[in-house]
């Protein structure tokens, strides 16, 4: 039991992301309303973005904005600076998530105009007629 607790404490961040991801995943596959599915997908994306950002963390490190003249003369210790690569990747991922949300909302509005509802089963019923 102590070993298990130590395991959770050492990697507590992953437990948070997995919980968030489970909430989003359940909303995506368990709910009937299309808007709720979309919000679930957004929560899922947030979990993945948080996971990638946490991959760049180094204990006791500074933000990746350096002093130019100091670095040109003395160089820099890699262990003191946070890994900038996950930040870049997630910056673009956030913008993709915004555009995906926008397009999905547009299609949902179009579906609402066409069928008058956003419930999945009601749309399926109307499609079969």
């Amino acid at each position: 039991m102590d070993q298990f607790t130590a395991l959770i404490v050492a990697k507590y961040n992953y437990w948070i992301y997995v919980t968030l991801m489970m909430i989003g995943f359940y909303a995506m596959i368990g709910k009937k309303n299309l808007v709720k599915k979309l919000i679930g997908m957004n929560i899922f994306q947030t979990a993945i973005i948080l996971m990638f950002v946490s991959a760049g963390v180094k204990q006791g490190a500074r933000i990746p904005i350096l002093d130019k003249h100091h670095v040109m003369e003395h160089g820099v210790n890699v262990a003191e600076i946070v890994n900038p690569l996950p930040h870049v990747l997630m910056l673009t991922a956030i913008v993709v998530s915004v555009s995906v949300t926008g397009v999905a909302l547009a299609i949902l509005l179009r579906i609402y105009r066409e069928y008058g509802t956003l419930e999945e089963d009601e749309i399926l019923e109307k499609l079969e007629k």
Partner: peptide, 8 residues
């Protein structure tokens, strides 16, 4: 270039 920020 010098602070948090950028195009996005």
């Amino acid at each position: 270039h010098y602070s948090p920020g950028g195009g996005f």
